[in-house]
Write a protein that binds this DNA or RNA. Sequence first.
DNA 1: CTGTGTGCAAACACTTTGCAGGTGT
DNA 2: ACACCTGCAAAGTGTTTGCACACAG
Lengths: 143, 143
Amino acid sequence: MSDIHQILKSYHLRCTASRSDILELFAQKDMALSEPEIEEEMYGRCDRVTIYRTLATFLDKGILHKVLDDAGAAKYALCADNCQQSTYHSHNHVHFKCYRCEKTTCIEEVSIPAINLPQGYLLEEMNMLLQGVCGACNLPRKR
Amino acid sequence: MSDIHQILKSYHLRCTASRSDILELFAQKDMALSEPEIEEEMYGRCDRVTIYRTLATFLDKGILHKVLDDAGAAKYALCADNCQQSTYHSHNHVHFKCYRCEKTTCIEEVSIPAINLPQGYLLEEMNMLLQGVCGACNLPRKR
DNA sequence: CTGTGTGCAAACACTTTGCAGGTGT
DNA sequence: ACACCTGCAAAGTGTTTGCACACAG
């Protein structure tokens, strides 16, 4: 069977058309996606509600993680393989949102630096969103 | 006149009841607030739409800044005096959201560490959200 | 066959827009 | 007096829930 099928199986999820389509979309696009964006890409192949429920399922299983965004809709991205490695599921990489191409991507190479919180604080999750112009959009123009 | 009045005047804004109420609320609460939260605190003293428009105005003038959040509604917080100091308006402090008291606060003492992005990236804005248990909620219980 | 996933309808929550009337300066 | 602010109504978007049917295992 396909990779996708295997992945779903490994998370003890039934392999349905919607689930493989959505998972494949994330793998292809390699960027953070919101439900409306997914819906557009699916072009009626599955219902909006199914997308929301699938996102919730994937989030729950640790296939996806939420990505912070300052716009209207919640975004999600594939977890890297090493997400599960530490004691608890963590995503200490940085997300970058480009003002030009509008894409939000995970910068796996950059990890979030350590932070010294004031005494008494208990840190459980860290998220960092950088915004600006990405490498691809910032290329010098040829003449 | 009151402080609030002075502040509004300094931003070239008319001093209206809604504006001073909302600005005062932010000053009192000293935490990030969403429109629904503000609406509740205002208890009918002004319309929901006015709150949204006031938030937009304050954001535009640099009185408030957006605070990232993984929940439903957008949150806003007062800009510190030093926001305006650098060449362009920046908020390189960390935000902390407590799982217990649900408050999101600005940790002014901690600034976001420098990040080395891959070549070609142009950084314009940085946001960092930490989540866990805040100092106040994490106090050891007395017996 | 059975439990889980899906689609549809509807409700809910957050946010924006248009317009008429009110208010700060 | 005039520009700007506010309230109301309505519509636009994002998200959740209930229920009947469909389908994977």
